[in-house]
C-alpha cells in the first residue's frame, strides 16, 4: 500500500518535472505545498538527504560536509565531538559515511553494511523543543506521526573509545529504529555544559521505510526520466570487496604498527598543543582498532586495553581542545 502511494505520486511528479517555477506563484505553489504536506516527494535516497538538509537549514543549522577520515559514526566528526566541548553554541547538520568493519556481510544481508550513511544533527545547547523539532523533521520527509506508531525508547549512548556518554532514546517508527537521540552528558571525559542534543538518522533505514523495500540494496538512489540507480548498483561491489578486505586480507601486522604509530603521533601532537591533528590521529587509531577487531586479531582481554588506549588519547585531546578554545576566548560564545 505504502509502495503504491509513493509510486503513484512519483508518476505525477514526472509529468511536470520542473513545474513550479513556470506557473504563477500564487495558486500553484500553494497547491503544491499542500500536496507536499500530504505526499512529499521523497522517492529517492538523495531526495531524503535533500529534504533533511533543507528542514534543518530552516532550523538554523549550518550544513557541513562529511569528514574525510574513516569513522564509525557521525559523532566522531569534529563538528560533533569537539564542538560538544566547552561553552560555545553550535548547530550543524551533515551526512557522514560510517565504517564498521565487523558489520560487513559481503552484501548478503539486506540490513547490514560495513559502510553506510548517517544524517547527523547537532544542536548545542539542546533546545527545549528538540523532540518537537525532530518530530517535525519526520513530517518533512513524509512520515505523519498521526498515522504511525512513533516511540522514544530508552537507549543511553556510550562511546568507550571517546570517553563520551549521553542519555537518550532510539526512536522507533512502527517498531523500527530510525534515529538515535542523545543528550550528551560527557565528551572526552569532560562534562558537557551546555548539553548538546544529537540526532542521528539511519538514512538507509528511513529510506527503506519510505520506499517500502526490504533490502537496502534495492533502495533507489537516483531516479528520473533517463536514470535509475539503486543503492546496490553503487555499493554492492563495495560491500563484497570491503568485507573480504576487512575479514580476510587486512594486513594485521601492519595495522598493529599503524595503531602504535597513530598513538605515538597523537601524543606528540598533544605535546605540540595541536588538538585538531591530534584528534585525527585518535580517529585513525580508532579505525585501525576496528579493522583489527574485524580480523579477530585482538583477544577478548586485550580488546579492553586497546579501547582504553584510544580513550586515553581522546580525553587528552578533548582537554587540550578545551584549553586552546579557552585561550582564544571561546570565539563563538556570543553566537548563540
Amino acid at each position: 500500500m505504502e509502495k503504491k502511494k509513493i509510486a503513484a505520486f512519483a508518476q505525477k511528479n514526472e509529468t511536470s518535472p520542473s513545474g513550479s517555477k513556470r506557473h504563477p506563484i500564487s495558486r500553484a505553489s500553494r497547491r503544491e505545498r499542500e500536496m507536499t504536506k500530504k505526499h512529499p516527494s521523497i522517492k529517492t535516497f538523495q531526495d531524503l538527504i535533500l529534504a533533511l538538509q533543507s528542514y534543518w537549514i530552516k532550523q538554523g543549522c549550518l550544513i557541513a560536509q562529511p569528514l574525510d577520515i574513516e569513522v564509525g559514526a557521525g559523532t566522531f566528526h569534529p563538528f560533533t565531538f569537539l564542538r560538544a566541548i566547552g561553552p560555545e553554541p553550535w548547530k550543524a547538520a551533515y551526512v557522514q559515511p560510517c565504517r564498521r568493519p565487523t558489520d560487513g556481510r559481503y552484501g548478503e544481508n539486506p540490513n547490514r553494511l560495513q559502510h553506510y550513511y548517517q544524517f547527523q544533527v547537532m544542536l548545542k545547547p539542546s533546545p527545549d523543543n528538540i523532540q518537537a523539532l525532530y518530530l517535525d523533521s519526520l513530517q518533512a520527509i513524509g512520515i505523519d506521526p498521526k498515522e504511525h506508531d512513533i516511540r522514544f525508547v530508552e537507549d543511553n549512548w556510550e562511546s568507550p573509545t571517546l570517553g563520551a556518554w549521553g542519555i537518550g532514546w532510539e526512536v522507533w517508527l512502527n517498531g523500527m529504529e530510525i534515529t538515535q537521540f542523545t543528550y550528551f552528558q560527557q565528551a572526552g571525559g569532560l562534562e558537557c555544559r551546555p548539553v548538546t542534543g544529537e540526532l542521528t538518522y539511519g538514512l538507509e533505514r528511513v529510506a527503506m521505510y519510505l520506499q517500502g523495500v526490504d533490502s537496502c540494496f534495492d533502495l533507489i538512489w537516483q531516479e528520473d526520466a533517463q536514470h535509475k540507480i539503486t543503492y546496490g548498483d553503487i555499493f554492492l561491489q563495495n560491500e563484497q570487496e570491503m568485507s573480504a578486505y576487512n575479514f580476510e586480507w587486512a594486513d594485521t601486522a601492519l595495522l598493529f604498527e599503524h595503531f602504535t604509530h597513530h598513538e605515538t603521533q597523537c601524543r606528540f601532537l598533544i605535546e605540540k598543543a595541536l588538538p585538531l591533528p591530534a584528534y585525527e590521529m585518535v580517529l585513525k587509531a580508532s579505525h585501525t582498532f576496528n579493522l583489527l577487531d574485524a580480523r579477530h586479531a585482538i583477544s577478548v582481554t586485550e580488546r579492553q586495553r586497546y579501547i582504553l588506549r584510544v580513550r586515553t588519547l581522546a580525553k587528552a585531546v578533548a582537554e587540550l581542545y578545551y584549553q586552546t578554545r579557552e585561550k582564544m576566548g571561546f570565539p563563538l560564545k556570543a553566537n548563540g
Binding site: N109, P110, E147, D149, N174
Partner: peptide
C-alpha cells in the same frame, strides 16, 4: 504488537512491525 497508537492506518503500523520482524528473524536465521 503492543502499539501506543490508534491509527486509521493501523495496517501501516502492522506492516512496519512485520518488516522489522522479518529482518530480525532473518538475522536469527542467518
Amino acid at each position: 504488537i503492543v502499539s501506543n497508537m490508534v491509527s486509521k492506518e493501523s495496517q501501516k503500523i502492522i506492516q512496519g512491525n512485520e518488516r522489522v520482524m522479518r529482518a530480525r528473524l532473518s538475522d536469527a536465521g542467518y
